[in-house]
């Protein structure tokens, strides 16, 4: 069952992978060619955040409607989100190595935020695995999911704006957003965001269907 948006996601990502390497980019101090990481690193994070948000929406839906299907979707979306954290981290580390000269730094609130986000979702899965009863597990996991997501948003969105960060766009570092006004980069960046989010939806779709089928098989 291949739908148009699945094909679109592959085509868009292919386009951004190739054109991301070829597109003319502004030459900035320190950043230079690494600015192209904007086409890979940032959209993957957006896809991760999208999946985490998706997970929370279905957690809320589960609490209001009390159906197990929402819980399964919420769980699978969290797993997909965590999966996207991996390439996001890798591209980020690579980029950091070539611009900051180190793979990882604990000085940066955004990096810490990501580490915390990963820890939160690992705790979420541990919580899930420690409760046997399905209904109970679904409800308690949903509660933790919502609470943790709010704290994570505080961490990722609010704190970095308060403290100095090494990250582009914070603390006087050159930002991607400020310099890509020539619209060459936007032509790659925006499609990349859409493409990666569509890909995450596709992965979620497959995982979700598998999980629901497994659940039904175990029920029968």
């Amino acid at each position: 069952m291949i739908r148009w948006w699945k094909i679109a996601s592959v085509l868009i990502i292919l386009y951004t992978l190739v054109w991301g390497m070829l597109a003319p980019v502004p030459r900035l101090n320190i950043l230079y060619e690494t600015i192209r990481n904007l086409f890979y690193h940032v959209p993957i994070w957006f896809a991760m955040l999208f999946m985490m948000g998706y997970s929370v929406v279905f957690a809320i839906k589960h609490l209001s409607k009390n159906d197990l299907q929402s819980d399964i979707i919420s769980d699978q979306a969290a797993q997909t989100g965590l999966f996207f954290a991996l390439p996001g981290l890798l591209t980020g580390c690579m980029w950091a190595k070539f611009t900051w000269g180190t793979w990882w730094t604990f000085q940066d609130p955004k990096l810490n935020g990501v580490a915390i986000a990963v820890l939160i979702y690992l705790a979420y899965f541990i919580l899930r695995s420690s409760i046997d009863d399905e209904q109970k597990r679904a409800r308690i996991a949903a509660v933790y999911n919502i609470f943790a997501f709010v704290m994570m948003v505080v961490f990722i969105m609010i704190l970095p704006r308060l403290t100095d960060s090494l990250h582009p766009g914070n603390g006087g570092n050159p930002a991607f957003g400020k310099y890509d006004l020539n619209s060459n980069m936007r032509m790659v960046f925006y499609p990349a965001v859409v493409g990666w989010i569509l890909l995450s939806l596709w992965i979620l779709d497959v995982k979700k269907r598998l999980a629901i089928l497994t659940y039904k098989k175990n029920e029968a």
Partner: peptide, 8 residues
């Protein structure tokens, strides 16, 4: 993990 933002 949830306390971390507060702690920082």
């Amino acid at each position: 993990p949830v306390l971390m933002p507060l702690l920082l």
